[in-house]
Write a protein that binds this DNA or RNA. Structure first.
Lengths: 123, 123
DNA sequence: ACGTCGTTTCGCCAATTAACGAAATGTAGA
DNA sequence: TCTACATTTCGTTAATTGGCGAAACGACGT
């Protein structure tokens, strides 16, 4: 029950579902997810931590950056099944589509993206 | 997204998961679910209404009694998929097993069960 | 060693939600 | 009609959760 409950709780938030939709495209760094979701960094960090504890995503650190990706086959069946279900539903979702478009734009800039996000931008 | 989110929210509560585990056995009346879960009638009624709005269960009225059963094939794919997933997980769950045992006992009494639940019991 | 910067943790506030009992609803039987 | 009773709705309270900014953390470059 614990696992199932944790999985469902993790998936019962719109921001977290959107994040999963983004990760479906490719592994992403926290700041890229932040940019698309338009939430405070600390908020998104918390969301990713919830998804991690539910074993829906995994992360790795590379220098100062934290990269997140969808869970692999070693995750509990509850997580894998629910993930598959959620991604299938997101595939047909309007908001998720818009997010994927926004992600494409973010991935193009990278340099300016970082700049705009920080207040010290001079562009 | 709305449907997916509603489904996941409905499934992210232990009492509601337990109720689904009971309904897997057979169609049940509200008071039987109340008896097994050990919660106030009004609380369980609210839970069942949440499950209904997420299209995870359906209900019918027969006289003063409200009967609930798991959703049929006409429910949204999100609901059906999540339901299948949750039930599979509950199959292996300790608490769910205990609930099924408790349900068997409740189904046997029926008369006395109703009696005990109401404060006017004289047994 | 020091400052910078991406991330995480912490503390707070607002919104949501589960729980209860009381009151309202609706149906069956006297 | 009046009463009894299963269920639902309402109002309140306590706990949980999402959101933010500030502070702490940790790694890189100077």
């Amino acid at each position: 029950m614990r696992t199932l409950l944790a999985t469902m709780k993790a998936l019962s938030d719109e921001s977290r579902l959107r994040a999963l939709g983004l990760l479906r495209e490719r592994e992403l760094c926290l700041c890229q997810i932040v940019e698309v979701l338009g939430l405070a960094t600390s908020t998104v960090s918390k969301h990713m931590s919830v998804l991690q504890q539910a074993r829906l995503v995994e992360s790795r650190k590379e220098g100062r950056w934290a990269y997140f990706r969808l869970a692999d086959d070693e995750a509990p069946t509850e997580a894998l099944g629910a993930l598959e279900l959620a991604l299938a539903s997101l595939d047909r979702d309007k908001q998720a589509k818009a997010d994927r478009r926004a992600l494409k734009a973010v991935l193009k800039m990278s340099a300016e993206e970082l700049c705009r996000k920080q207040a010290n931008c001079k562009c």
